[in-house]
Design a protein around this nucleic acid. Structure first.
Lengths: 199, 199, 199, 199
DNA sequence: GATGAATGAGGATTCATTCAT
DNA sequence: AATGAATGAATCCTCATTCAT
C-alpha cells in the first residue's frame, strides 16, 4: 500500500494501463469490468485512468485499437511473395491462428466482446474488413477462376468466419493449432480457392 | 399510454414478455437491457416480469431456451431422407440461413449475446453442440471418405462457424440468403464433405 | 393447489388468519413477514386478508389485540382471594410464566416485535400498563409498608421487567419455568414487597 | 442543502456516519431506516455509506459494535475496589442507568432494536453476556451465601432485565435516574444478593 | 504528477395493495 | 364468496465520473 507507482514516462504508463485493461476486459467482459478493477489491476489510481483515457469507452477503444493493429501487423508481415499460392494461404492461416493462440486475451476482447458490444462493433469491423480484404486478395491470386471482387470478399468473409470459429476453439484450448491449420487450409484451398465448380 | 393490455391468461403474457425481452436484448445486449425497458416494451409493469420469471437472469435464460428450441426444431424438421446427400446438405443450410433471416433478433440474442456472456454461454453451447452433432451426421453421410467422429465434428464446427459468419451478414442485410446458400453448400461439399484430395 | 379453502363462517376464518399471521410474525418479525407468506400459511388468497383486515398494520394490530386479551384474561383469572399474599404473588408469577411458556409465539410477537415497532408499541403498552396496575395492587396488598401508588407502580414495572427477562429465557427454552417462579417470587417478596429498607 | 461538509478525513467521516445512523435507527428501527435517510442525516451521499461500510447490515453492525464497546467500557470503568460491596452495587447501577440516560438513542438501537432483529441479536447478546458476567461477579462478592455460578448468572440476568425495564422508563423520560438507582440497588441487595431467606 | 474523497444517476428487486372476474 | 392478474412506490446497491488537495 501507498506510493507503489513511481513517476513513469507516459508511454510506459499507457501500455501498463492497456495491459491491465485487456486483462480485466477479457476476464469480465466490457460491462463486468469496472474502472475500479482496472485501476487496481494496473496498480494506479482511478483518476490516472481518466487522465490518460478520458472515459471507459475510450479506454476500451484504445484496447481495441492497439490489439487490432498488432493483429493486422502480424498478418501483413506474413505476406511472402516467394511462396506458392497454397503455401501463402497456409502460412497466412498459421500466422493468424498462431497469433490467436499466443494472444488469447486480446482475441477474446476483440472478437468476443467488442464485436458484439454495439458501440464498438464498428471499430473492430473496420479492421476485420481489412483482414477480409487481405484474404480476398490471397484468394484471388490463388484462384484459377475469374470471379467478381464481391464474390471473393464473400468467400473471404466465410473463410474468416470459419477461422474465427476455429480461433475460439484454440483460445479455449479445445483444439490444436496445427490440426486447425491443416483443416482450414484444405477447406480454403479446395472449397473456395478455385477449381471450377464441376466439369 | 397505449394498449394497457389487461388481465391476459398466463400463457399469453409469457410469450408477450419473451417477445419484448428478445427485442430489447437484441438491441442493447444483456447488460444494456434494463428490466424497465423490457417491461415498457412489453407494456406491462416491472413486477410482472419478476412474478413470471423471477430475475433478469432467468428471463434471459428463458429467452435462450425458447429460441434455442425453436431453432433446433427448425433444423431437425429439415431432415428429409428422400433427398440425395448433397441436396440434404443444401436444404439444411437453406433452412438454417432462412431461420436466421426471419429471426434476426433471436439470432443476435442467442449467438451474439448469450454466447459471449459468460454465465449463459453454456446454455447456448449445449444446443449449439446438438447442432454440431446434427451437422456432423449429415457430413458423414455425404462423405465418401471414412473419418473419425472427431474429425467430422471439427469439420462441423468449422462449417457452422462459417455459417454463423454468413448468418451475421444476412442478419445485417449485407448478403442475400440464396447466394450464401450456394456458397456454403459448395464450401461444405467440396471443402469438407470429402472427395479425396486429388493426387 | 386449487380450492382448498371452503366457505367457512367468518369467525373461524378470522381465527385461522390470525393464527397464521402470528406464526409468520413470530418467525420473521413484522417487516420480514410478507402478506404473501401469511396468506400462504393461512391457505387463503391475499385479497381475503385484505377483505378481513384491510391492511398489514391492521392485521398486526388484530394479532396484538387478540393475544393481549388472552394474556390479560389469564392473569386476571389467576386472582384468588383465598390465598395468602405471598401465595398470591407466587401464583400470579406462575400463571404469567406458564402462559409465556405455552404461548411462546404470541409472547414473541407481543413483547419482542410489537413493543419495539414504533407504530405498535402503544398498543402493547396499554395492556402492559394494565398488567403493571394489577401487579402494583398485589404488591400493595402484600406489603407491610405504606408507599405511594407511584412507588408501587415503579416496583411493579421493575418486577415485570425482570419477569420479561425471565420470560425471554423461557421462550427460548433456556430456563425452566419452576426455577424461574421460585427466583422471581423470592425477588419480589424480599426485594420489593416490603420489609422496611433498613432498621 | 446546508453544510455540504466536504472532504473530511476518513476517521471523522466514520464517526459522523455512525452518529447519523444511530439517530435514524433509533427513530425508525432497522427496517424503517433507509440508507437514503441515513445519508441525508449525515449530510453525505449514499455511495459514501457503501464505500465506508459496504452494506446496511454492516453499517448496523458497526453501530452495535461502537455502542456496545462504549457501554461496556463505561461499566468496566465503574469498578472500584475501595468501595464496600453495597456501594459497588449501587455505583454500578448508577453508572449503568446514567449511561442509558445520556445515551438514549444508543440504548434504543442496541437493546430495543438489535436485540430483537434476528440477524443481529447475537452481536448484542455477546456483549450483554459480558455484562451479565460482570454483574454476576459483583453479586457474588456482595453475597454472604455460597451459590453456584449458574445461580448468580440467572440472578444477574434477572437484575439486568429489571435494569432494562427501568432503563426504558428513563430513556422515555418517565422515571428519574436517582429513584431508579435506589430501587434497583435495594432490589438487588435484598432480593438477590443474598441474606439467607429468613426462617 | 498523483490521489483520497465524494457523488449523480440508474439498475435490480420486493412489497403492500387493488382490480376485474 | 373468492382469487388470479396487475402495479406504484420504495429499497438496497453499484458504477462511471469528478473535485480538491
Amino acid at each position: 500500500m501507498g506510493g507503489q507507482s513511481k513517476r513513469l514516462p507516459r508511454a510506459i504508463r499507457e501500455q501498463q494501463m492497456l495491459d491491465a485493461a485487456i486483462d480485466v476486459f477479457a476476464k469480465h467482459g466490457y460491462h463486468g469490468a469496472s474502472m475500479n478493477a482496472i485501476a487496481a489491476e494496473a496498480e494506479i489510481s482511478k483518476p490516472m485512468l481518466y487522465l490518460y483515457y478520458g472515459s471507459k469507452d475510450e479506454l476500451f477503444a484504445a484496447c481495441i485499437r492497439r490489439e487490432s493493429t498488432r493483429f493486422l501487423d502480424a498478418l501483413t508481415g506474413a505476406a511472402d511473395p516467394t511462396l506458392t499460392p497454397r503455401e501463402q494461404l497456409e502460412h497466412g492461416i498459421r500466422v493468424f491462428l498462431g497469433f490467436v493462440n499466443t494472444n488469447r486475451k486480446a482475441w477474446r476482447v476483440l472478437y468476443r466482446q467488442a464485436l458484439y458490444q454495439n458501440e464498438f462493433a464498428e471499430l473492430v469491423l473496420s479492421s476485420r474488413d481489412r483482414a477480409v480484404e487481405l484474404t480476398a486478395l490471397i484468394l484471388r491470386s490463388s484462384s484459377r477462376d475469374e470471379r467478381s471482387n464481391d464474390q471473393y470478399r464473400l468467400m473471404a468473409t466465410v473463410l474468416i468466419g470459419a477461422g474465427e470459429a476455429v480461433a475460439d476453439l484454440i483460445a479455449d484450448g479445445t483444439a490444436q493449432t496445427e490440426d486447425a491449420v491443416t483443416l482450414l487450409t484444405d477447406l480454403a484451398w479446395r472449397g473456395l480457392a478455385g477449381r471450377k465448380p464441376v466439369h
